[in-house]
Amino acid sequence: MTNRIDTRLADLRKQGRAAFVTFLMAGDPDPATSLAIVEALPEAGADIIEIGMPFTDPMADGPAIQAAGLRALKGGMTLRKTLDLVRGFRAGDDHTPIVLMGYYNPIYIYGVETFLADAKAAGVDGLIIVDLPPEEDEELCLPAMAAGLNFIRLATPTTDDKRLPAVLANTSGFVYYVSITGITGAAAANAARVGEAVARIKRHTRLPVCVGFGIRTPDAARDIAGAADGAVVGTALVEALAKSLDAGSRATPATVKAVADLTASLAQGVRAAARAAG
């Protein structure tokens, strides 16, 4: 079964360039603006769209993404509405892959089987769940793969060679390499070290490796894109969004454009990369 993620990454490989992956929080700062932003992303150069599922207790996220989640929740966002957002986007775009990223509890409470069916029907392609390591694969990973969704695994600098086979065993779509030990938005990724890590992971898998956490600028995006199959940017986009809001954290006429403009310049960085990863 081919899916949008495999198709998109194979196309980009043929074009000889890395993927640009964006992350923004669903419903930030309100559902309508959030849909307008997501709709603007492909045109601005996003190849794959990650959408955060807001959660009250995001243990792996820094202040910017924590605040984005709280803005969304305050605006009434729920997991059901996150799926509505995906459905809304799919009405106008049937090609750009959508990956939902977040924490397990809202999915567990929604009901795993119902969630997987609803997510698939809404047009979701993959899931990244921060607090589900391979040790808990029976919870969601195996049911998600059975339902035809990609379950994308996080590999980190602490995932050593001994552990990599377990981490890569039940995974599909791509591998998300977390380039720093830390929370989102903290340190800056070092391209040389990232290159070594990507090579190490590729000795264990044929899946593409995308790299995220700590990429903030077009130059950094270019460097990382030169060392991997894709570069993920989240915090920088979320911060650009936050900066465009009014004093009451409401969207302004500048909000969608602020995110689209930064997306475009980061995408240029990615496209400028000399392709290294094979």
Partner: peptide
């Protein structure tokens, strides 16, 4: 051995922490 008391417990943590 997986840290379960009936259905409760477990190891729901980020991959970074899992080796530790």
């Amino acid at each position: 051995e997986r840290g379960h008391f009936g259905m409760f417990g477990g190891r729901f943590v980020a991959e970074t922490l899992m080796p530790l």
